[in-house]
Nucleic acid binder design. Sequence first.
DNA 1: TAAATTTTGAACGTTTTTGATTGATTTTTA
DNA 2: TAAAAATCAATCAAAAACGTTCAAAATTTA
Lengths: 248, 248
Amino acid sequence: MLTKKRHQLILELLAREEVVKMQKIVEQTGASESTIRRDLSQLETAGHLRRVHGGATANHLQIEEPSYFEKSDQHVEEKERIARAAADLIEDGMYVYLDAGTTTLAIVPYLEEKAITVVTNSLPLANTLLYHRIPTFVVGGQLKHSTQALVGYNAREGMLIYHFDVAFLGMNGVHPAQGFTTPDPEEALVKKTAIELAKQSYVLVDETKLDAISFSRVASLQAATIITTTSSEQEAKYSQYTEVVNAK
Amino acid sequence: MLTKKRHQLILELLAREEVVKMQKIVEQTGASESTIRRDLSQLETAGHLRRVHGGATANHLQIEEPSYFEKSDQHVEEKERIARAAADLIEDGMYVYLDAGTTTLAIVPYLEEKAITVVTNSLPLANTLLYHRIPTFVVGGQLKHSTQALVGYNAREGMLIYHFDVAFLGMNGVHPAQGFTTPDPEEALVKKTAIELAKQSYVLVDETKLDAISFSRVASLQAATIITTTSSEQEAKYSQYTEVVNAK
DNA sequence: TAAATTTTGAACGTTTTTGATTGATTTTTA
DNA sequence: TAAAAATCAATCAAAAACGTTCAAAATTTA
């Protein structure tokens, strides 16, 4: 297998799985361990991935992740369903805002066939969008360490030059009285701005975020449609305040 | 088989598979290895494909893809020396602009102990800066696939709110008469803006870029100090036009 | 048809890539 | 915490691929 092909394959594996073991690459390529090591260090110096003991990670993966090689996320399937429901709302020609977050990240693979332009404030999303060759603009601003998102006053200013057909946002709290909330005020500002600039906004949350309240208020429930997977009681309850899409 | 037919077949294979081995072309055409080599170099100079060790890859109409396909581990030692020389110029409290590129990327590890703020237009740099926990702002703009950099009019606008003590830039061509040049006009615009906004600018290049001319002009040599590793003759020559730091 | 030109394939020395091996380092296990 | 296991970087020789050269074959031109 040619070097180029191996590199492609490695990047593909990473785009799908975020983390990949040495052993797996060796199997998939049929090359020796030495060769793969060389490949990885080349791709690392080119800025396409990050090596870790035992393999490599997408260079946008959270650094403090406890154990790289365990995919412990139980909400994976829910996220996937929510992401699919969100992607279904996106049509050719649209200008789409994608907020930082793992759920919005899950939307990206479903966008590959669509002729759209995406704006995002998230580094991981930018990397993934790039990989899927989707035309992308990145909002400038201060790079926040914990979420790898661009936030703050500068980010807001940078967004104001755009308008969106749809915006998809992650959120930490969704509550009938307190509306949409998130821990960091600077992030809240960005989310709020996105909602202002979009014709239609969607908040993507798994069930655990319903009835939760976080520190900074982003907007009232009326400002966006909620996409989630939950019981029909909860669905009915929130439907009193805004539109709810249940991706069950 | 006619030359034309062979060329056609090679391009067809590439259109289908993105990467194709020498061996496969030889089988399919029945021609000798030498002949296929000749074919490939012809097709390459005509801009229809890109040769790689062991075969060829599709070109996809890209004019040039410096960062992605560049042999990123060539000139490693030179790059390291240049990066170290550059890092030595950075002092606590400075606001630093780091342009996209593998040489500027090499600076980052040397910045860890310094109390500085960095602005960049490069996704790989942003990731690496994040990893090294260096306070970072990212310039917004259009995400360019081949270099993973943010470029264009929006990027320029986004930069205008900053001022830099120093700016470090990669470059594709450095020439006494033609000044600093780079392949992509939109990238040139960003580099030019960085120079405008910085009190002092440095262009980091390995020896191969000296005397080279690329498509888009960024600035004249007077606009920035050159940091490179080269012979004393070249150093003397370029010292006539601007300051030169030889990191030999 | 004969001469001139171009294309071809084999040969050869050089460069690049590769996989095995080594001892060092890191992670896991006990 | 110490020993065992896994993974690592560095090295080196073998293998693969490379560019160059040259004479034979094919094609074009005169």
